[in-house]
Write a protein that binds this DNA or RNA. Structure first.
Length: 425
RNA sequence: GGAGAGGUGGCAGAGUGGUUGAAUGCGUCGGUCUCGAAAACCGGUAUAGGGGAAACUCUAUCGAGGGUUCGAAUCCCUCCCUCUCCGCCA
């Protein structure tokens, strides 16, 4: 969430920034009003509490000296009643303020291209070239079926549509991809592997800014009050919730594989084919906790970490920088990595790398102590970045399609062979 | 699921109604000493919010939320979590 102080002191700046995201300023107006009302009451309350504290100390002294304090007690009781009344008023305002703040997105970074929606995203670079096939390419559904490695129908039987079943060499290939990516990030890119829970409580979902804003997109187990994570970002970020980290430990970099669960409410009928949009998918996630001055630099590194995988797999991809109007809720800057689908004849999003700066860390209370040269310490919010490195479902589409042979088989990319123990499907 | 114990600062651990934001130890930071280090000694060391140019000051916080009281870490209620034993079980 945004810093209320920033809104208080620089409302016009905040409104202008939000406008570039297509947000209207009405909510900020409401917030300003609630905040000033709250401050006014806060001043009264603190004054009254100060009086009460002093009076209580006096009473303590009187009692100690065996003096009659009943007058003082009676007077202080009145103070207490006033405080109670104001307390309930301020609590109401605080709740209102929170409810508004929870729905205000992060402010775009200065160098993010302006634009109203996805059509105005900017292509940063393209890697590799499209292969040319001298036969008609099959899509991943045909390949999956004919080679008996993907079974969407039976996945549907088990759960419902959008829950894929991998089979035989398909399952092995998926596992190989995951292992390859993890090993790469651990050995070459300096990440610490974590294997986290895939269910998260409400506090964790809130800390990662997924709830209440996106509550309808989450699977929720009412009986236990738990959410299925939409991304490992949630579970990994919460490793350090409510912690104060040491500055010499930063940046802290984790990678972790989990299943991810998304209801995709409202997107029925769109990209429903096979892997293009699923409710459960596999993803290796990268999370970085760092000092504010490092975050944009770390972001570029994360982008390299993710694209390095694609390059070693020989997958044709491009990097898109999202414009202000297309940025995710928590992100100040975001790159999408898209892989080329030969059968769909379009780019598919396989990863996004986001710098969420202090937007999540404020809510999650993840800070660090900065040691000043003068021996003084200052507590600051860390910056948090997340990136998929990568999600396998759409990567699998690109991989199967681009490695198909004219006899309908799949050649396993070189780097995966030591994980699959086969070269061909 | 049944029975019991407990949640206090970075950690360990005192504290059962009144200058307790909280003893003590450890850690940590600064300093003295030293050629340097260790040891020893001295001093500092929570978080959030408000006011103030600043010095500083006020408020809140002892798992969370309510209650009792002039006053709550301490008493009462609800919830959450952890641990131990039993049961069940991958």
């Amino acid at each position: 969430m945004l810093d209320i102080k920033l809104i208080r002191e620089n409302p016009d700046y905040v409104k202008q920034k939000l406008k570039t995201r297509g947000e209207d300023e009405a909510a900020i107006h409401r917030i300003e009003k609630i905040d000033s009302d709250r401050l006014e009451i806060l001043h009264k309350i603190e004054k009254l509490k100060e009086l009460r504290n002093k009076a209580s100390d006096d009473i303590a002294v009187m009692k100690k000296n065996k003096l009659d304090a009943s007058d003082a007690i009676a007077q202080t009781r009145i103070l207490g009643d006033e405080i109670k009344e104001l307390d309930s008023q301020i609590k109401k305002l605080e709740t209102e303020l929170e409810q508004e703040l929870y729905f205000i997105p992060a402010l775009p970074a200065e160098n993010v291209p302006l634009g109203k929606d996805a059509t105005e995203n900017v292509e940063v670079r393209v890697w590799g070239e499209k292969k040319s096939f001298d036969f008609k390419v099959k899509d991943h559904l045909e390949l999956g079926k004919s080679l008996d490695i993907l079974d969407f129908e039976r996945g549907t039987k088990i759960t419902g549509s959008g829950f894929p079943l991998y089979k035989g060499k398909g399952a092995t290939l998926e596992r190989a991809l995951i292992n390859y990516m993890l090993d790469n990030h651990i050995s070459n890119n300096g990440y610490t592997e974590v294997l986290t829970p895939v269910l998260a409580n409400r506090a964790s979902m809130e800390a990662a800014e997924k709830v209440p804003k996106f509550e309808d997109d989450m699977y929720y187990i009412e009986k236990d009050g738990l959410f299925a994570i939409p991304t490992a970002e949630v579970s990994i970020l919460n490793i350090h919730r409510d912690e104060i980290l040491k500055d010499e430990d930063l940046p802290i970099k984790y990678c972790g594989f989990t299943n991810c669960f998304r209801r995709e409410a409202g997107s029925y009928g769109k990209d429903t084919k096979g892997f293009l949009r699923v409710h459960q998918f596999n993803k290796v996630e990268l999370i970085n906790f760092c000092k504010p001055e490092e975050s944009y630099n770390e972001m570029e590194k994360m982008l390299k970490d993710a694209t390095g995988i694609l390059e070693s797999l020989g997958i044709h991809y491009r990097i898109i920088e999202l414009c202000t109007g297309d940025l995710g809720f928590s992100a100040s800057k975001c790159y999408d990595i898209e892989v080329w689908s030969y059968a769909e004849d379009k780019w598919l999003e396989a990863s996004s790398v986001s710098n969420c700066t202090d937007f999540q860390s404020r809510r999650a209370k993840i800070r660090f102590k900065r040691h000043g040269g003068d021996g003084k310490q200052k507590t600051e919010l860390v910056h948090i970045l997340n990136g998929s490195g990568l999600a396998t479902s759409r990567l699998m589409v690109a991989l199967l399609e681009s490695y198909q042979t004219n006899d309908g088989h799949i050649t396993v990319p070189e780097v995966l062979r030591k994980y699959t123990n086969f070269e061909r499907i």
